[in-house]
């Protein structure tokens, strides 16, 4: 599987996880949007299918990080990991085309397209 496809699946998986997390937030529930339980279960299944599409090692890292931090991926901004707010080593920045993890917190790093 190409790096681009893995990255695309990871981003979608991450956005789905954020969607599911928000649904359970008391502040979100209070706003009063309609959420169908049946559809929520279907989304959980989509998530599981997406996870299966990833290489096993990547899926395991993602799940482990999600369990630890709730959010497994951290954006990179101005050379900082936005998960732990530590400056990333320059050598790492030069490898921004790869799927890599933060040397400090271990989160999967994501470089936004400018």
């Amino acid at each position: 599987m190409s790096t681009e496809i893995v990255e695309m699946h990871l981003k979608l998986l991450f956005d789905l996880d954020n969607l599911l997390n928000d649904m359970d937030e008391p502040a979100y529930k209070k706003i009063g949007f309609k959420v169908e339980e049946k559809e929520k279960q279907s989304l959980i299944k989509t998530r599981t299918d997406l996870l299966k599409k990833l290489p096993r090692a990547t899926a395991d890292i993602y799940e482990r990080l999600k369990k630890r931090y709730q959010r497994a991926i951290a954006p990179v901004d101005n050379g900082f990991c936005f998960g732990c707010f530590q400056r990333l080593p320059i050598q790492l920045l030069a490898r921004s085309e790869e799927i890599i993890t933060c040397p400090n917190c271990g989160r999967i790093l994501y470089w936004r397209k400018k």
């Binding site: 956005d15 789905l16 969607l19 949007f33 959420v35 559809e39 989304l43």
Partner: peptide
């Protein structure tokens, strides 16, 4: 992602 959210309701 927005369309997935719409699927939920």
């Amino acid at each position: 992602t927005l369309l997935k959210r719409e699927e939920l309701g």
